[in-house]
Amino acid sequence: MSALKAKHQRLVLGLIALLALVGAGLLAAYALRNQADYFYLPGQMLADPPRPDRDVRLGGMVEEGSLATQPDGVTLAFVVTDKDRARVPVRFSGIVPDLFVEGSGVVAEGRLRSDGVFEASNLLAKHDENYIPRELEDMTKAQAEQIVAETRAADPGT
């Protein structure tokens, strides 16, 4: 190592560290723009559907009367709806969270298939009285009830 270089070793080390960290920061910023999972309400999802290869979250209320178990016993089909009555059909294979019932709030993680069905890989429901998935917090209980009521009114057959 040359004398000049040795003299500035601390400076060089500092620069290398700084460079690596800035690089990490830029990489993180780039990756976050592309890899973060965006949250959609049913209306947003219908208006501006995400690409089929992107993981996203869909949040809303489980429509009354829409919940049906497929013959295999482990695949569920239901419809997630919001206060503007936009409806997104959802498929989920697995064991549902304990508080998952018709009329309850839900956040589904998964992808929107190109045929318009949301393929959920995981469901987050209300865990207990004190915890609400943060995306659903804006929907107060009253709003939720209103959605349910409106859904009923719109679909008297159920």
Binding site: L27, A31, Q35, A36, D37, Y38, F39, R57
Partner: peptide
């Protein structure tokens, strides 16, 4: 947004 394995694992 939520940030999950899609970001953390590869990066």
């Amino acid at each position: 947004v939520s940030v999950g394995p899609n970001y953390f694992n590869p990066v």
